[in-house]
């Protein structure tokens, strides 16, 4: 099974990287972008029987710094994983 862990900055935490991307989009003349927030996607390949508590613990102990970041866990069954060229 694959896990997709999305790590994003909490609301209210300044995101200079997102701001710079936003600025660059505007300088490329793209209109209508109101805000940009940058985050991380961490993909794990794990045993199918892995405990949810262990997944949570991985996020809490290492993958996210919960002082500044939120995380979201998405489980993707192997059959649903498609390679893209």
């Amino acid at each position: 099974m694959k896990l997709k862990i999305y790590v994003t900055l909490k609301n209210g935490v300044l995101d200079p990287q997102g701001k710079a991307i936003h600025h660059a989009l505007e300088s490329l003349d793209f209109k209508g972008v109101q805000d940009v927030r940058a985050g991380k996607l961490i993909e794990l390949t794990v045993d199918d029987n892995i405990a949810d508590a262990d997944i949570e613990a991985m996020c809490e102990k290492l993958l996210a710094n919960t002082v500044i970041e939120n995380y979201a866990i998405e489980k993707v069954a192997d059959s649903a994983v498609q390679e893209t060229a």
Binding site: L14, P16, Q17, I68
Partner: peptide
């Protein structure tokens, strides 16, 4: 030290990048 939790808070990317 902040990542260990011996000090509070976090050090983030400088605001001006």
């Amino acid at each position: 030290l902040t990542e260990i939790g011996l000090l509070p808070g976090a050090l983030m990317r400088n605001s001006q990048i």
